[in-house]
Design a binder for these strands. Structure first.
Lengths: 88, 88
DNA sequence: CGTGTAAGGAATTCTGACACG
DNA sequence: CGTGTAAGGAATTCTGACACG
């Protein structure tokens, strides 16, 4: 059974809210999705929905990008972390 | 200083998400606002933003309405509860 | 009282592409 | 590589009003 309520993970925000909260452009947010760094949900009419968790990930990404890290590297890094969590 | 992060109280959702999560119509959600039962935030372009807390309040309201309680009574009830919390 | 609906405008979102590099 | 932008269509949101009652 799936957990019914998790404020942090629930995909509820639209693009506008995300750009407001992160300071990133729509273009940036969508690009990071194509790079498989974030995974917004989609409504029946194709609009994206983001979670608080996504917002936090985006802010991490923004920092790394500023440091000159490539999206490819950020993704590998995320994948590694996910693996570690699974091993635990 | 204001608390910077509270997933539950942060006003981040648009009307569409709210109607999806509560099952209410846009009309109902807006009406309950005119009755001072919920207080969404507004963006610079006038669109409403709701919090998880608002969603929960809306579901409470929906239940009461079904029981035949008047919005006026629901509001008085909410006001009483707020007062109690303050006294504590 | 509480809610549905049609109306018309404004703001939002989406995709694919050109651009720079 | 990462991001800006103009383009055009589709979906969303808003307000004020008429309707029923």
């Amino acid at each position: 059974m799936k957990k019914d309520y998790s404020y942090r993970e629930k995909k509820v925000m639209t693009m506008k809210t995300v750009t407001e909260m992160t300071g990133l452009s729509e273009r940036q947010v969508r690009y990071y999705e194509t790079q498989k760094l974030i995974f917004p949900a989609r409504t029946s009419s194709r609009t994206r929905r983001y979670s608080f968790s996504d917002i936090e990930t985006l802010m991490d990404i923004a920092e790394k990008i500023e440091e000159g890290v490539l999206t490819r590297e950020i993704r590998d890094d995320f994948d590694k972390k996910r693996k570690k969590i699974r091993i635990k």
